[in-house]
Design a binder for these strands. Structure first.
Lengths: 342, 342
DNA sequence: AGTTAGCACTCAACGTCATAGAGTGCTAAC
DNA sequence: GTTAGCACTCTATGACGTTGAGTGCTAACT
């Protein structure tokens, strides 16, 4: 059996209604609100077919039907039409970003706020994503802080700044630092971030005999720079409690726990890091705790480098069109701000 | 009527039991579990007195009694005995901090994790507290990034690093930056953070005629450095959903919303910022959303400067002794780590 | 052949009611 | 001052019937 055009329409109506109300949709509702030319009996026949095809589930005999994950999949792939944001919505979103912000972290936080207040779902932003190791070193320098303490400063292409305090066993003057900075720069500028630790190792080997001080620094630095830690910002978790799907408090707790646990979150986001957009529905998310959630992610770039993956997490019956529109807008704004000050 | 020693004991037993079970405590329970020499009838009489004195409430005639806020106040002020952490508990807490961590932010996050996993409540850590403006500039420097872009780096007493990218209208070489860095250092090192913007203003005035470049930098820097923003880290919000007091999802949502809203959180923490410890119960917290919560805060210092306020938020029937012990331990560890690398 | 009216059937949700059990307050005896 | 005993109160629980939304099927209609 194939899905003819009418079945598509009916399925779409059911999904739309279910997204709105969160309660099973009956044939009569569809007949009255969406397909007034058809009687409820006809709809019933069609719904029966749709159930057989796996697009609808019935919680029990005498409730209405609810869309299956397969239905949502079809919906986001084919049925959904893009809706642009209204001028007001866009303005409201933009207002979250009003001030000139400097740090990626701050921008990310605002973006998360914007996302979740516009969608009423939870939002996640991961900066320095999987490919951050592809970033190239633009600048590296040691800065004098006090005798025995120096700050190692590393700036990448996209303006991401890594700074780390080094405690050294040697007193050293500003001149030493300047000299060493030059050595580091010569060797590392233009180098990929992921290659930095190896390069440092090699340098440490080469210089071991000549300068104990330098090897000291190199080894200290290697520890710090080896694992570029992605940063994760979460916003609007409390929003999720609005929805009846989380009225079971134990489920809600599990979900919120995921949003608090960086590794799980990152796992969720990294799956989508390659693609421009991802929509994962229910079990597609890969975590049992989110098996009744959907996750929409987008990845944004500055130049050719990924700077962040941003995502929205909500119930499977989320308002996909709106989420995508908002996500895109926020993502662009996010990238744009970082670009302006990169 | 005065509280004699027996009344104290009974009240304490009621509070202890209620903290454990979250359900109203009856006279029989006390008689069996806590005061085996007394019959339930005697306890009943005493409980009746305690209710009249305002230490107990009864939800309805035939439930047991629950402690009033006044009772908790008495409890934390007089009845509670300090219990030291067991060796295992301390070890477990310490394990959260294992790695050498550099950034205040990272340490704070670990501390929050430690706090909430040890207490099963939510935890909040505010770094750069109210008095962060009292911090003194230890080091200030401009770092060359690319022509037209420089990084202004400022390090304080406690190792707090502020960095901000400046976009300049001038091309400038490394020598220029070095020269200007010296000028800035001469003037600003040792200066309180809160005085920096004013000092910059003044300098801008003095140099306006001589160096357009310098004033450009100074004015850019002033914007960035003017408002030292406290940073707030939250951990373990999901823990709160464990407790029956938040089985009403709407209440839970409101509370979680507070934990997501920086200004409200900071408001909560700043009240206790002066004192070494604070325990605020119910309405004492000052926010309607937390009127059935208690908040325990501690403030920690490095040298004479406050570096953070850390707190635990839970239901009024929280395990105060344990919370205080954990809070103290984590607070000390937190301060110690920052001190070691300051 | 597709559509629809009609009808019997199903099942969660809701309100009612009786019961059980935990707890109180009072009184009288110890 | 303490305690046993008892009547009383009130929630929680479960049984039960009713209601209403919804289905599936059949037969009639276009």
């Amino acid at each position: 059996m194939e899905l003819d055009e009418r079945k598509f329409r009916i399925l779409q109506a059911i999904i739309d209604d279910y997204i709105l109300t969160a309660s099973p949709v009956g044939s009569r509702t569809i007949s009255r609100k969406y397909e007034q030319k058809l009687s409820s009996a006809t709809i019933r026949n069609e719904m029966s077919d749709l159930e057989e095809l796996g697009y609808l589930d019935s919680p029990h005999t005498s409730a209405g039907r609810i869309p299956s994950h397969k239905a949502y999949r079809l919906y986001v792939d084919q049925l959904m039409h893009m809706v642009p944001l209204t001028v007001e919505e866009a303005g409201q979103l933009r207002s979250h970003f009003d001030q000139r912000m400097k740090q990626v972290h701050a921008v990310a936080q605002r973006a998360a706020q914007a996302l979740s207040s516009a969608t009423n779902y939870a939002s996640v932003i991961m900066t320095r994503p999987t490919q951050s190791s592809q970033l190239r070193v633009k600048h590296i320098q040691l800065v004098h802080v006090s005798p025995g303490v120096a700050l190692l400063l590393l700036i990448t292409d996209t303006g991401v700044v890594k700074e780390t305090l080094l405690h050294l066993n040697h007193e050293l003057g500003i001149d030493d630092l300047y000299r060493i900075s030059r050595i580091l720069s010569e060797r590392l500028v233009g180098c990929k971030l992921e290659d930095v630790p190896a390069a440092l190792m090699q340098m440490a080997g080469e210089w071991r005999e000549q300068s104990e001080l330098l090897t000291d620094i190199l080894e200290g630095a290697r520890d710090q720079l080896s694992v570029p830690q992605p940063e994760v910002v979460v916003g609007g978790s409390a929003n999720l409690l609005r929805y009846p799907e989380y009225s079971d408090i134990e489920k809600a707790r599990e979900l919120l726990l995921v949003l608090e646990t960086k590794d799980k979150l990152m796992h969720l986001l990294e799956q989508g890091a390659g693609m421009e957009f991802t929509i994962r529905i229910g079990s597609e998310t890969g975590l049992p705790e989110t098996s009744d959630c959907s996750i929409v992610t987008g990845t944004y770039r500055v130049g050719s480098d990924t700077i962040g993956t941003i995502g929205v997490i909500g119930p499977t019956r989320m308002q996909y069109q709106k989420v995508i529109a908002v996500l895109d807008y926020v993502g662009r704004t996010f990238a744009q701000i970082l670009r302006e000050q990169g």
